[in-house]
Write a protein that binds this DNA or RNA. Structure first.
Length: 583
DNA sequence: GACAGACGCGCC
DNA sequence: AAAGGGCGCGTCTGTC
């Protein structure tokens, strides 16, 4: 495909009519899906009165009228695409105006400004800029958006103008090709999310219920905690010699204090070393209580219907570009509960986990020759690192790498970090520089150009805020011996991690886009995505091809995102009937 | 009763 | 052994 795809714009007018028209080539924001080179700028072709325009009741009609492969320019994929899917109108690619606006505003250092299409249009025309509608509350189980405030409609011509403006602004970014790739990939991710929301994750409520009874015991008719939780609570009380409510941290701390043990909190790691008879039942209680409240019977009733768990996936939900889900805690499903995720009869789950994704991404973005070489070997990355100055100790090597990525400040990690720095100076310097940028109030970007917003303005406004770089602050915490305040150092840890976690998220978007494309023509469906892991539900006979496609998509994503590097992006892949069997 | 923030813990 | 990144979400707790 050398010809860039046709672009059409689609807009709703507020009276139930949809308007569609081709986009003049000069206005293309471009680029690409991961598969294709960025659309190049075209000579201006004015959209004259001769341009065909569609006015239809059903947007799916417009999709069917346009050439296959058209890139759809619309306000918001999440607002439009579910309806198209329901009408059987899948699209291949899109340009999500409001997501692109968010990315551009961030890149331009204007992250606080409203990102709606209406706001973008207002900025373009000098009108009053409407604030963004409040992020909608999770509507548990609700299927209708009847009572949501509807965003003001943006006429087709306004949409076209905003699109043209975005094309120009993309061209003015630090790395236009990367930024175009990012917007295209994230637009594709919104398509994937809508399709995943529709498909749902296969979920066996009967298996889940049996699991709950096995773990937690029967529920009593009168309500209250299930049997095993009640028994554990009794044992805890017995150990303290009085009634203690294990789900009340204050009560637990008081009870330990009465036993002569001072605690700062009731976190597991603080409790588990203690010598007290309540420790064992208390830890067991915490674990089960968590399952009971977060993924118990109530959760099942709320979230699983007709054999599917349907969380609402939301790409770009975090600052770093990771996804979040709205409701259902889909990205925190405890491992033990995954027993309930079972493929349909005759179908399989292909579960693929990218191996040590973040260190590999650090290798690629830092261009550290030694680290890239290590990340290109066909073996476990930490094992490979451990041969480089860690005398084969994989755990130490892993700790050092994670310490570098997360900003470890103490413990043995620091010593290991020094060894890492000697062997892979450029890689460590890359994250160190990101941390310094954060401490000095500068902005950092991911490889493709997603930009971290400046620090929140709450509290002292003198921190970071407006790019007064170069002066590490030292205020409000005399107790720390360091050169910078707690907040400043926290900011440094955030920006340090941002460049790695965010660039990994960049890669994951490309992975999803490439995989989605590879699955066209198969019955296989993407049903789950969690940062570095995908789950595809497919007929058993497609499983091998799907596994192959995932591996290819990962390598392709690495090549498209980071260019030609030796870094590999392998997966651990399992073809299973039950999700719990994948690990 | 509604709301906000802290806590604690699940996942990556 | 101890404390570093990103989240969602349920519960508790204090406040209005």
């Amino acid at each position: 495909m050398s010809e860039p795809p046709t672009r059409w714009a689609l807009a709703e007018d507020g009276d139930g009519w949809w308007h569609a028209a081709p986009v003049a080539p000069a206005a293309r924001t471009t680029a690409a899906d991961p598969a294709e080179p960025a659309d190049r700028a075209h000579p201006a072709t004015p959209t004259g009165p001769a341009t065909p325009r569609l006015r239809v009741r059903d947007p799916a009609e417009a999709v069917r009228a346009a050439p296959p492969g058209t890139r759809w320019v619309w306000r918001s994929t999440a607002a439009v695409y579910p309806r198209l899917l329901a009408a059987g109108a899948r699209v291949e690619r899109c340009h999500d105006i409001e997501d692109c606006e968010l990315l551009l505003l961030g890149h331009e250092g204007r992250s606080g400004e409203p990102r709606s299409a209406a706001a973008a249009w207002a900025r373009l025309t000098g009108g009053p800029v409407p604030p963004d509608p409040a992020p909608r509350a999770a509507e548990r189980g609700a299927q209708d958006s009847l009572f949501e405030p509807r965003p003001s409609p943006v006429p087709l011509d306004a949409l076209l103008a905003v699109h043209a403006d975005q094309a120009a602004r993309l061209g003015a970014t630090a790395h236009p090709d990367r930024m175009r790739l990012l917007t295209a990939a994230e637009s594709a991710a919104f398509l994937v999310a809508a399709e995943m929301n529709r498909a749902g994750l296969p979920w066996r409520a009967d298996v889940h219920r049996a699991l709950l009874t096995e773990l937690l015991g029967e529920r009593y008719a009168g309500g209250g905690e299930p049997r095993r939780l009640a028994e554990l609570a009794d044992r805890i009380s017995a150990a303290f010699g009085r009634r203690v409510r294990p789900d009340l941290p204050a009560d637990v701390i008081r009870a330990f204090a009465e036993a002569g043990i001072k605690l700062k909190s009731t976190r597991r790691w603080e409790i588990q070393g203690l010598d007290h008879p309540a420790v064992e039942p208390l830890l067991a209680y915490k674990k089960l209580y968590r399952i009971y409240t977060a993924h118990g019977w109530a959760w099942l009733a709320d979230w699983v219907h007709e054999g599917r768990f349907r969380p609402e996936f939301l790409p770009a939900g975090t600052l770093t570009g990771r996804w979040v889900t709205n409701g259902g805690g889909a990205l925190q499903i405890p491992k033990v509960i995954r027993r309930a995720v079972v493929a349909d009869p005759g179908w399989r789950l292909v579960v693929a986990d990218a191996d040590q994704m973040e260190p590999r991404v650090l290798a690629a973005i830092s261009r550290d020759p030694a680290f890239m070489e290590v990340a290109g070997r066909p073996e476990d990355l930490y094992t490979a690192v451990s041969r480089q100055g860690f005398s084969g100790d994989r755990d130490k090597a892993k700790l050092a790498v994670l310490g570098a990525v997360y900003g470890q400040t103490s413990g043995d990690g620091l010593k290991n970090l020094a060894a890492l720095r000697r062997r892979f100076p450029r890689a460590v310097a890359y994250v160190d520089e990101a941390a310094r940028a954060g401490e000095e109030g500068r902005l950092v970007r991911t490889w493709l150009g997603r930009t971290c917003p400046p620090p929140a303005v709450s509290g002292d406004p003198d921190e970071g805020g407006g790019g007064e770089a170069g002066v590490p602050q030292d205020r409000d915490d005399a107790w720390t011996p360091g050169y910078a305040s707690t907040d400043t150092r926290a900011r440094g840890r955030f920006t340090r991690n941002f460049v790695v976690q965010g660039s990994a998220a960049d890669w994951a978007l490309l992975l999803l886009a490439a995989l989605r494309q590879a699955l066209v023509g198969m019955r296989a469906e993407l049903v789950f995505f969690q940062h570095d892991e995908v789950v595809v539900h497919c007929p058993a006979e497609e499983a091998a091809a799907v596994a192959e496609a995932i591996g290819a998509a990962g390598e392709r994503a690495g090549r498209i995102a980071f260019g030609d590097t030796p870094v590999r992006f392998p997966f651990t892949t399992a073809v299973v009937e039950c999700y719990a069997d994948a690990k």
